[in-house]
Design a protein around this nucleic acid. Structure first.
Length: 278
DNA sequence: AAATTGAACAACCGCAAGACT
DNA sequence: CAGTCTTGCGGTTGTTCAATT
């Protein structure tokens, strides 16, 4: 005997929403804003539970909702993010403007999971591509004469922060100015002696690679963001303890695009469940 | 034409975390 | 600080509709 469903009270409607109900809910939220869902139905004059109202608004009525026609880009992104994050639908949806967690979840369950099962869990060409890219990048790291991090175990507290921007513009073949942004990772290694609670450095490395699986190194398929074409991994300079790792991300962008890049780095931190600190 | 099947997606449910009292 | 409330999340179920038999 579980607890009572929230919509079990007499007189509360359930099931599909009518146009009239949608209209009432939309009008009420437009006038009074979101929130206080529990009391919203009575205030708005709806015979629904607050939970149902919230869901209806978030998944269907919100003005910024993009419905149907998941594009190929979105499709690819969902696959990559799911590989990285698992069933964290809200996080995945957060990277797809206008899409809801419910929609992504449904899309995954009805389209993508079947497709991936059909193709051997996606671990074929896709995985090979990642491996190849990983090797390529490590080669870049080596030629740049930076120290390559070893896979090592950290304890459960891993921090990520954006370092002060490094003003080291350089030029590529097209004489285009680049921008560097650093991410400093800090694993408090073996602080409590529990080796089983740690993050594997390999795992965040894999995660970074997953973010950059396209041939053109496009970051997250986001048209508005600059494509990131290179990732270097190095020990942070000046740190005595070797649990600091610095990930350098170079972007083909000028100064004005730095906020985009910082946004992506913060998103990455969130995805990987790292803490951020200034 | 009717019955069946399956895809798509809307909606519900229980749980957990954080906010509030 | 404990109890209660609110909100958000992810799993699951229910409903609709088109395709197939």
């Amino acid at each position: 005997m579980g607890r009572k469903p929230c919509c079990s009270r007499d007189g509360l409607r359930r099931g599909a929403w009518t146009q009239e109900e949608d209209k009432i809910l939309s009008a009420y939220i437009k006038a009074h804003g979101e929130g206080r869902w529990r009391s919203l139905p009575s205030r708005a004059g709806l015979k629904r539970c607050g939970k149902s109202c919230r869901l209806r608004w978030l998944n269907y009525l919100r003005p910024d909702i993009k419905r149907g026609n998941i594009s190929q880009e979105e499709d690819d992104l969902i696959i990559r993010l799911h590989k990285l994050l698992g069933n964290k639908w809200s996080l995945i949806a957060g990277r797809l403007p206008g899409r809801t967690d419910n929609e992504i979840k449904n899309y995954w369950n009805t389209h993508l999971s079947k497709t991936l099962i059909k193709h051997g869990n996606g671990h074929d060409e896709h995985q090979n591509k990642i491996e190849t890219k990983k090797e390529k990048t490590l080669a870049i790291v080596d030629t740049n004469n930076v120290v390559r991090t070893k896979a090592r175990r950290c304890t459960s507290n891993v921090f990520i922060t954006t370092t002060p921007q490094q003003q080291q513009p350089h030029f590529d073949d097209h004489n285009e100015e680049h921008m560097n942004t650093g991410v400093l990772l800090h694993g408090n290694e073996a602080a409590n002696g529990d080796e089983n609670t740690g993050h594997e450095i390999e795992s965040w490395w894999d995660a970074l690679m997953d973010f950059n699986m396209n041939d053109d190194w496009t970051w997250m398929n986001e048209a508005s963001s600059p494509p990131i074409h290179n990732i270097n991994v190095a020990e942070a300079e000046g740190d005595d303890d070797d649990d600091h790792h610095q990930v350098m991300i170079e972007s083909e962008a000028d100064e004005t695009r730095k906020p985009d890049l910082d946004l992506d780095l913060n998103a990455l931190a969130a995805f990987l469940d790292w803490e951020t600190y200034a």
